[in-house]
């Protein structure tokens, strides 16, 4: 898993593990912006994201000893961040509320390919970010893990506590929710069939 915008700083990690405060500061400076952005995408409010970023770095101090240096630090850091954000959402029962919608076996209708293509073409990044905030916790988290953190399906399954086979379904449902949000209720997904 490659993490955009982040530099691997193996040496700083090793020094931080040895208790070097400067190395710790280095790690924070390098990774805090990306982790904040991750939290900003995953959590409902800016304040939540700020709090979560600080908590993740405080947690990191305790967990750094568990980090396997043979693996990517940034990938591991995202795992910690994902678990933390998911815990927050789960505690707030947002997930539970939204999950009831998911659990309902409402079939997803097949989109009209040309309409979908048109919608995607029209929308800007900013509009997508705005629409993301309207999604349920799991849908948002799934999209963030996949398209921000570039996590594999296995990693997403692990982070969300779902079976690997359902990750595609979770992502598809999330996309449908996003399209509905982008369209402002008149769901494209419910639009037509080809």
């Amino acid at each position: 898993m490659s993490v955009p915008g982040m530099t691997e700083t193996t040496e700083a990690v090793a020094r931080a593990r040895a208790g070097d405060a400067d190395a710790w500061g280095e790690l924070y400076r390098d990774f805090a912006p990306a982790i904040f952005r991750f939290c900003r995408r995953a959590l409902p409010t800016r304040e939540d994201a700020e709090d979560a970023t600080m908590e993740i770095f405080m947690k990191l101090r305790d967990k750094l000893s568990q980090y396997d240096e043979t693996r990517s630090f940034s990938a591991w850091l995202y795992r910690v961040a994902a678990n933390h954000c998911w815990d927050i959402l789960r505690r707030r029962k947002i997930r539970q509320d939204k999950e009831t919608e998911d659990v309902e076996d409402v079939p997803l209708e097949h989109p009209d390919p040309s309409q979908l293509d048109k919608l995607i073409e029209q929308k800007t990044s900013e509009e997508v970010r705005h629409a993301l905030q309207k999604l349920g916790a799991r849908a948002r988290m799934a999209l963030v893990l996949r398209y921000y953190s570039d996590m594999s399906y296995d990693e997403i399954a692990d982070a969300l506590g779902v079976r690997r086979a359902f990750v595609g379904v979770v992502l598809l449902r999330a996309r449908h929710e996003l399209r509905q949000a982008l369209e402002g209720k008149s769901a494209l997904a419910a639009g037509g069939t080809s």
Binding site: F36, R37, K123, L143
Partner: peptide, 24 residues
Amino acid sequence: ESRLLTRAMLEEDEPLPSRLAEFQ
């Protein structure tokens, strides 16, 4: 849609809040 999502997610739309910048 995947590309749009990735772009929307990765764009640096807001700077690191001062509270976080000063945290350390």
